[in-house]
Design a protein around this nucleic acid. Structure first.
Lengths: 341, 341
DNA sequence: TTGTACGCGTTATCAA
DNA sequence: TTGATAACGCGTACAA
C-alpha cells in the first residue's frame, strides 16, 4: 500500500475547507445542494491535498465494484488477445475495470478463481472458451454472478453467450472450396471431445460435402486440435495415406499454418499444388506465406459485445439473449480457383 | 451485484452459531483464541449459510487490496501474452489479482488509467514497454505506487525494471551472423525515436560490424519498426537499393517474418539465398517457414520476475534492484552457414 | 476462551 | 444550502 504516505481522506478535505464531509461528498459526486462558493473552496482544498477518492470504501458502501472478472484459458494465440482487447476497451469506456484470470491448460484452478472473483465482489463475469465439462458452469450458476460466455456455450446450463455458428462457418468454408472446383478435400479438425469448436466444424464440413454429392473419405479426416503442431501432424498423416486431395480445411489458423509448413517442406506449392483454408483470421493469417485464406471471426467485436451484454445484465438485471456473430471468408492467397465461379 | 441475493455476512454466521463476530473473524483468519468446539460450530454455520468473506470490506480495513495493476500497450503480439502469463501466474500464486489496462496505440489514456488504478488502491503497478516520453514516469513517481517496469526503462526517473540488454543481444545476434561467414548484413531496425528497443539494437548491430572490420553501408540500414508491415517495407526497400547482402537482422520476429515473406515473393530461398534472424522468440518464430532463427527473450520469466520484485517491494517496502535478463540465440533454419565455425 | 465496540472512507438519510 | 450520523462488512484493541 503506497508505502508510508497516508492519503488524504474526505475528512481531511472537509476539515481544510471548513465544511462537512457530506458536502464534500456531494461535490465529488456532482450532486446538488451547495453554493458555487463552497464548491470552489472544496475543489481548491482537494487540489492542494491531492485528494483522490478511495474506491474501496465507496464500493463497500454502494455495493458495486465496477469490476468484471475474465476467465480465459492460458493459450498463446492472438485469438484471445483480440477478444480481450475488445473486452477491455469497452469495459474501460464504461468505467469498468477488468480482472483477468487464466485457467491454465486444463482449467484446473478455475473454481478457486471463481471463489476469488466472488469474494472480490466482481459485478460480472466473462468466460472465454468455457470447458465443455459442465462443472464450471454449475459453479457459476450457483454463484449467482451475472455471466456471459464468449466463443463457447453450455448445452446443459442456460448462460448467455456470444459466438459464431461454427457449423455454418465450416459449412461455408467447405462450400467455398467446392465452388472453386475442389472435390478432394481433407480436414484437420479439432478433437471430437470438443462439442463447441470440434464437432460442429467437422459436421459442417461433412454436410457441405454431402450436399454436393462428394463422397467422404475417412482417410482425409484427421481429428487433431487447434495448435500449430496439430496442423503439422495432421498434414503429415494426410500425406502418408497416399490419398489424393487438392485442398485442406484446418480447424484454426495456427493449425493451417502448421499444415502449410509441412506442405512447404514437401515441396508442395500452395495454392498451386494444394489449397488451404484456416479458421479465425488471427494475425498470423496475414503474416503467413502465402497469406492465408480463412474464415474470420469478429474477435474484437465479440469481446466488446460480451461486455455490452454483461453490463445490460448487471444494470437492468434483465435476461439477455445470446448472440450469434457473423463470420466471413477472407480471401487471400492459399486457395486455387480450379474452376471459375 | 449478484442480483437480488444478499450474501450472508460475518454477522449472520455469528448469530447462527451463537458467538460473536470477533470469534468468527478469528476462525476465518486462522488466529487462535477459541475452542475446537466453537470452531466446528462456526464452520458448520458458514457452510450452511454459504458464507464468503467480503474482500472489499476487508481491504478497507487492512489497507491492502492484494491487487496489482498492469499497464500495457495494445498490440496484438504473443509478445505481451507471454509476459502477461508470467505476471498472472506468479501473481495468482501469491494471492494477488491482476487488473489489466491497455494503453491504446499511443498510450493516450494512460494517466486516466493510473488514476483509476490509484483510486482502486492497487498495491503495486507493472508497466510493460513504458513509452520513452517521461511524463508517465513522472506521474507514477508522484503517485507513490510501488512500480516495476518490464522490457522498458526510464533514463530520467529511477524505477526498477526487468529487461534484457538490447544492445548486447543485438551485438550477439550480429556476431552470430558474422561467425557464420556473413559480411554483407542488412538491418531492419526499430525507429531511432525509440531509445529503448530501437537505438540500442541498432547500435549493437553497428558495433558488431565495426569490431569485425566490416564497413557499414547506409543502404543496408532501414529504420522502420517492430511490425510485420515494417519487415515487408524494409525488405522491399532493401531489395530496391540493389546493394548486395546475404543476411538481414530484423528488429522483431514479426518484422523478420515480414522480410521473410517478401523474400519468398521475390523467389529468394531462405536461407540459401538470404539469411534472416529475428528478435523475441515469440510463437511465430517456430511457426514461420522456414522456422526462424532468433534471439530469445525469456518473456514468461520476465513477467514472473517483475511481480516477484514488486511483491518484495510492497511487503518489505525495500528498494529493489533492476534486473538484466539473459538472452539466447535460438538456432533454427533461417541462417546459412557460409563457413563453418 | 470469548465478547464489545470502534474505525477503515465512503454514501445517504434526515433534520436543521 | 448545509451538517450530524448511521450504515456498509470486516478486523482488532481491550475488556471480561
Amino acid at each position: 500500500m503506497n508505502s508510508n504516505i497516508k492519503r488524504p481522506t474526505i475528512k481531511d478535505v472537509a476539515k481544510k475547507s471548513n465544511v462537512s464531509v457530506a458536502t464534500v461528498s456531494r461535490i465529488i459526486n456532482n450532486l446538488d445542494g451547495y453554493s458555487e462558493e463552497t464548491r470552489k473552496k472544496v475543489i481548491e482544498a482537494m487540489d492542494e491535498l491531492g485528494y483522490q477518492r478511495n474506491a474501496i470504501a465507496r464500493n463497500l458502501k454502494v455495493k458495486e465494484t465496477r469490476t468484471i472478472g475474465v476467465l480465459r484459458p492460458k493459450i498463446s494465440t492472438t485469438y484471445y488477445v483480440e477478444i480481450l482487447n475488445g473486452i477491455e476497451d469497452f469495459a474501460q469506456r464504461n468505467n469498468y475495470s477488468v480482472i483477468i484470470c487464466n485457467g491454465g491448460d486444463k482449467w484446473e484452478r478455475m473454481s478457486e478463481y471463481l471463489q476469488v472473483l466472488s469474494e472480490r465482489q466482481v459485478d460480472g463475469l466473462i468466460v472465454c472458451s468455457i470447458p465443455p465439462d459442465d462443472t464450471l458452469c454449475k459453479r457459476i450458476i450457483d454463484s449467482h454472478i451475472p455471466t456471459v460466455l464468449v466463443s463457447g456455450l453450455s448445452y446443459k446450463y442456460s448462460l448467455p453467450y456470444v459466438k459464431v455458428d461454427d457449423y455454418q462457418a465450416a459449412y461455408s468454408a467447405t462450400s467455398y472450396l467446392i465452388e472453386n472446383g475442389h472435390k478432394e478435400i481433407a480436414i484437420i479438425s479439432g478433437p471430437t471431445e470438443d462439442p463447441i469448436a470440434g464437432v460442429p466444424r467437422l459436421n459442417g464440413f461433412l454436410q457441405a460435402l454431402r450436399d454436393n454429392n462428394i463422397s467422404i473419405k475417412k482417410n482425409l479426416i484427421k481429428e487433431k486440435g487447434f495448435g500449430f503442431i496439430d496442423g503439422v501432424e495432421g498434414m503429415n498423416e494426410l500425406l502418408k495415406t497416399g490419398e489424393k486431395f487438392t485442398a485442406v480445411f484446418a480447424a484454426s489458423d495456427d493449425c493451417a499454418v502448421g499444415a502449410l509448413s509441412v506442405a512447404h517442406k514437401n515441396g508442395l506449392k500452395v495454392p498451386d499444388d494444394l489449397s488451404i483454408v484456416g479458421y479465425d483470421n488471427t494475425n498470423i493469417a496475414e503474416m503467413s506465406y502465402p497469406p492465408l485464406t480463412t474464415v474470420a471471426q469478429p474477435l474484437y467485436d465479440m469481446g466488446k459485445k460480451s461486455v455490452e451484454m454483461l453490463i445490460k445484465r448487471i444494470s437492468n438485471n434483465e435476461k439477455v439473449e445470446s448472440i450469434i456473430m457473423p463470420f466471413e471468408i477472407i480471401e487471400r492467397e492459399t486457395v486455387k480457383k480450379i474452376k471459375n465461379i
